[in-house]
């Protein structure tokens, strides 16, 4: 095994988990407030990110990047509100499964809308962070041929992670210290009681969808700025779904930690020449399976802890 590359790949993978965490958080937000698992999260962020691109691009409005991002986030918030108002509220009272299938249908609908309005070409998403000079950090304990080992991290990787974590902290503060945050936490616990203290739970659902749209799109923009933008962007939710389940569907810290773990494992799996036990051929198979590995880990974790790593325990007291 090429162990000298271990820290490099581990940290790269871990940092990659940042934007995934934002997307996972969007799913958790909606699930917490209304018990709906939102399968259309990926397409919501696709539309948000594509609109951001359109506001910025020469073919579009050609606005400065910061304005384009603000407008793009506004579009995704409105999209979230519209979805809640037009498709989910009329379904109140229907079995949850029908509503969840509705989000699955929505994902296809939104994907189709994206193709119709933006076309299928690959877009150049503007670079938000410095692309050239990557950060070089020398590692203290690792040496390679008696030279100190260097960790090379792309600037946008580090800054994306920073932005993602900043969003997580802002979101946490919003929940902890604002009245709307308190209403949302109360609604997440018990709809009937929330209504009985006068919380308009329909508004809360709308806010959750809008917020999920916004933070999902922030994640989408961070990913697009690193690896370009096309219609395959929604595939990132394939990493976010297991992250959400791993952390325990209702837990915000769980979603963040789950995403970082998923990022980390994907990084480790991609490690070249890890043929130390199974031989070169098996190593090749493992390396190209970075999309499946999260699900294998998810399976193992769910067998041991069915509520996920940080799933909320029901407090029973009589």
């Amino acid at each position: 095994m090429n162990w000298q590359l271990l820290p490099q790949f581990a940290i790269t993978g871990f940092l990659n988990g940042g934007p995934i965490a934002l997307i996972a958080l969007g799913i958790v937000l909606i699930f917490k407030s209304s018990e709906i698992f939102n399968f259309s999260q990926g397409q919501m962020l696709l539309i948000g990110t594509l609109s951001t691109w359109w506001f910025w691009a020469e073919e579009g409005l050609g606005l400065p990047l910061w304005a384009a991002i603000i407008l793009g986030l506004t579009v995704s918030a409105i999209l979230g509100l519209l979805i809640e108002r037009l498709t989910l509220r009329p379904m109140t009272g229907q079995p949850l499964l029908s509503i969840i299938l509705m989000t699955l249908a929505l994902s296809q609908f939104l994907q189709g809308m994206a193709i119709l309005t933006f076309g299928t070409t690959q877009r150049n998403f503007p670079a938000i962070f410095e692309v050239t000079s990557p950060y070089k950090i020398s590692l203290p304990f690792f040496t390679y041929n008696n030279n100190p080992m260097m960790l090379i991290l792309k600037q946008n990787l580090v800054w994306s992670f920073g932005v993602a974590m900043l969003c997580v902290i802002l979101l946490w503060a919003f929940f902890q210290y604002t009245r709307t945050g308190l209403s949302m936490r109360a609604t997440a616990e018990d709809h009937e009681t929330a209504q009985s203290v006068g919380i308009r739970i329909n508004h809360i659902f709308g806010i959750s969808w809008a917020l999920a749209g916004i933070i999902g799109t922030v994640g989408g923009i961070l990913i697009a700025t690193a690896s370009g933008l096309d219609l395959s962007l929604p595939i990132v939710v394939l990493a976010a779904f297991p992250a959400v389940l791993l952390g325990g569907l209702e837990s915000i810290p769980g979603a963040v930690i789950g995403s970082l773990l998923i990022g980390l494992t994907q990084g480790l799996v991609a490690l070249p020449n890890n043929d130390f036990i199974l031989g070169a051929e098996a190593a090749q198979v493992i390396r190209s399976s970075s999309e499946i590995i999260p699900y294998i880990i998810l399976l193992i974790v769910l067998v041991i802890r069915p509520d996920g790593l940080f799933g909320q325990k029901r407090i029973e007291r009589i």
Partner: peptide
């Protein structure tokens, strides 16, 4: 008109004070 539901029905994962404050959200 505020109802205190049967079986108390607090928001279990919120603190005591947060529970009280939810009452004043209106």
């Amino acid at each position: 008109i505020v109802q205190v539901l049967e079986g108390r029905r607090l928001f279990q994962h919120l603190t005591t004070e947060e529970n009280l404050l939810t009452g004043a959200l209106i």
